[in-house]
Design a protein around this nucleic acid. Structure first.
Length: 608
RNA sequence: GGCCCCGUAGUGUAGCGGUCUAACACGCCACCCUGUCACGGUGGAGAUCGUCGGUUCGAAUCCGAUCGGGGUCGCCA
């Protein structure tokens, strides 16, 4: 090794020891006759001192050194002189008096500061990601990610899980997200698809008798990006045989509560985790991924206003809808302008309008619709929502599907505006009993809400065909702070039931055979009852890291347009390479390509 | 794919029709400085304002297109 100690580990106990360190020049403070260098390595940093009398040659080297130079120093750990200790540094009680130093490598001035947490343009950060990762925040996130993964492996190993790798080159499936395709050289015109998840493989492993499987699995989806969506991302994929929902949920609760205690002990993680059905979650929060930190719930106000003079409410109720709303704590300070903005948001989200009622501190009521209601009714509305003076009610009258969506959007907005979400709390919850199917208006057919292999409840199997919308599935989500962390289900393990579901989804026999024949066949060979879940690793780490964007916890993420500014991927390939995989570009693709190439050439010219 | 925001020295920002011969902070370079730790001091270099086109007597500033980054809806579990 080029060093005897890691810089960040030196403590007062090391005083008197001779050490060799190697690392980067984090910062240099040149006092003319004395030079301090903060030497940084992966472990942290320590101050090293260059005295011209004690080590003239080293002092000379230190004069030449600049930020991010790679430096090796020999010296003695000494206790700092009283009054010069730095309590802000872990190593602040000591410093290293340098005897000799070697510049292992020079460094150009970095394109953005490494020793400072400044905001830097996303594209620049990604272009020099290896420098971005040197920065404290990113380095910390990488370590956190490692610790999360290490904990997961240890945890699952201790519970008898087997880590199995599954293919990256697989079969394309038209269901779900768009596939990334890989052309086959050997089979002209045929394509592999990168896995959207190892879903089918893990079920086949259950048929194989593995019983407890997991994998830190890379998944690929060719869809547009978001803060919480990258084209390739990682899941903790797991599956168990001979289990009930509770077994999976209990396992996940143990895992996540344990993880929180291990990697985020400063965060408050209430347990046991809240459990509620999808129906209950939609009723109380208008969402299947509620943020429980807000402390706000939706109330049904239909009966209170059923006989009111207010026609909007009455018409909505007559049309089979309901009147629902929630209280905004302290919302009485909302100016007219703010209420109008909320109404606009409600309309954008699909509501016909928004009724707001402010209960002023002095007991008076302010609302555009106050005149339609008796005083008792207004009081009853407040009571139903748990509102008191100083609060505001937001009310939507519509079909449940609309009011849920709108109230969810409104709730998130007011929570954001009013900082209702405690950043120090991880409010986990399990949402269970999701609907089996949802109506795909575009395709004019039913589609699986979770995925094809999700089992319906036994008692819902019969009504599945006659009323698909009412059938409940044995699917569940783990959510936290208003975000979906992972979803899973108990699977269908009998061929007969799977065939019925496929028929319901309008897949005819031969099509089903072609696309899922291997699964149908596998199920005829004694597939055990099984189920699993797949929490998103990136989201999990982001959650514990307090990061909003999963790019902050991925070493080399892609931009919003799925490019990598560091390597330049994706890029064109030579004609021979294309020919080898039997691919010809369309004229449009070629035109777009040459246009891009010209742009790139200009950029290069400008650089020089 | 739709809509929205952003694009000015290495970085982050200011400037938003003439006074910009483009400002500030950090960084960078040089010199000075033996106890700093976001060291300090003095001086200096560095951007024609993403690109192309237009409006105008005059454009960093207005308009259009285009490229890049971000957000959001669609899409995606």
């Amino acid at each position: 090794m080029l060093r005897t100690h890691a810089a960040g580990t030196l403590r007062i106990e090391h005083a008197g020891e001779a050490v060799t360190l190697a690392g980067w020049v984090h910062r240099r403070r040149d006092h003319g006759g004395l030079i301090f260098v903060d030497l940084r390595d992966a472990s942290g940093l320590v101050q090293v001192v260059f005295h011209p009398e004690d080590a003239p040659e080293a002092f000379e080297a230190a004069s030449e050194v600049r930020s991010e130079y790679v430096l090796q120093v020999d010296g003695d750990v000494v206790a700092r002189q009283p009054g010069t200790e730095n309590p802000d540094l872990d190593t602040g009680a000591v410093e290293v008096a340098v005897r000799s130093a070697a510049i292992l490598n020079a460094a150009r001035t970095p394109p953005f500061p490494i020793n400072q947490e400044t905001n830097v343009d996303e594209a620049t950060r990604l272009r020099y990601r290896y420098l971005d990762l040197r920065r404290e925040r990113m380095a910390r996130n990488l370590v956190l990610r490692h610790r999360v993964i290490a904990y997961m492996r240890r945890f699952l190993n201790d519970r008898g899980f087997l880590e199995v790798e599954t293919p990256v080159l697989g079969l394309a499936t038209p269901e779900g997200a768009r596939d990334y395709l890989v052309p086959s050289r050997v089979h002209p015109g045929d394509f592999y698809a990168l896995p959207q998840s190892p879903q089918q493989w893990k079920q086949l492993l259950m048929v194989a008798g593995v019983e407890r499987y997991f994998q830190i699995a890379r998944c690929y989806r060719d869809e547009d990006l978001r803060a919480d969506r990258q084209p390739e991302f990682t899941q903790l994929d797991l599956e168990m045989s001979f289990v009930h929902e509770d077994d999976i949920l209990a396992l996940m609760e143990d895992l996540y509560a344990g993880l929180a205690a291990e990697v985020a002990p400063d965060l408050d993680t209430p347990s046991p985790f809240v459990r509620m059905t999808y129906a209950e979650s939609m009723e109380r929060y208008g969402s299947d991924k509620p943020d429980l930190r807000f402390g706000i719930e939706i109330s049904d106000l239909t009966d209170i206003v059923r006989d009111s003079e207010f026609m909007v409410f009455r018409r909505a109720i007559e049309a089979g809808g309901r009147v629902r709303g929630f209280a905004v704590p302290g919302g009485a300070d909302t100016p007219r302008r703010g209420a109008d903005a909320l109404e606009a948001l409600a309309k954008e989200s699909g509501a016909g309008g928004l009724v707001w009622i402010v209960y002023e501190e002095d007991g008076s009521v302010r609302s555009p619709v106050a005149r339609f209601f008796e005083e008792e009714t207004l009081a009853a509305l407040a009571e139903a929502c748990g509102a008191s003076n100083g609060d505001m009610l937001l009310i939507v009258a519509d079909q449940d599907a609309v009011s849920s969506r709108v109230l969810d959007v409104l709730m998130r907005r007011v929570a954001e505006d009013r900082d209702l979400a405690d950043p120090n709390v991880l409010a986990f919850a399990f949402i269970t009993e999701f609907p089996m199917f949802e109506w795909d208006a575009q395709g004019q057919r039913w589609s699986a809400m979770h995925h094809l292999f999700t089992a319906p409840f036994e008692e819902d199997v019969e009504r599945m065909e006659e009323d698909p919308a009412a059938a409940r599935s044995r699917a569940y989500d783990l959510v936290c702070n208003g975000q979906e962390i992972g979803s899973g289900s108990i699977r269908i393990h009998r061929r007969e039931l799977l065939s019925r579901v496929l028929r319901l989804l309008d897949l005819d026999e031969s099509e089903a055979e072609e696309r899922f024949g291997h699964m149908l066949e596998a199920f005829t060979f004694g597939a055990p009852p099984h189920g699993g879940i797949a929490p998103g690793l990136d989201r999990t780490v982001a959650l514990f890291a307090g990061e909003r964007d999963i790019r902050e916890v991925i070493a080399f993420p892609k931009t919003k347009s799925a490019t990598d500014p560091l390597t330049g991927a994706p890029a064109s390939v030579h004609g021979e390479q294309l020919a080898e995989v039997h691919i010809a570009l369309t004229p449009e693709a070629e035109a777009a390509q040459s246009q891009r190439d010209e742009g790139a050439r200009e950029e290069v010219t400008n650089d020089v």
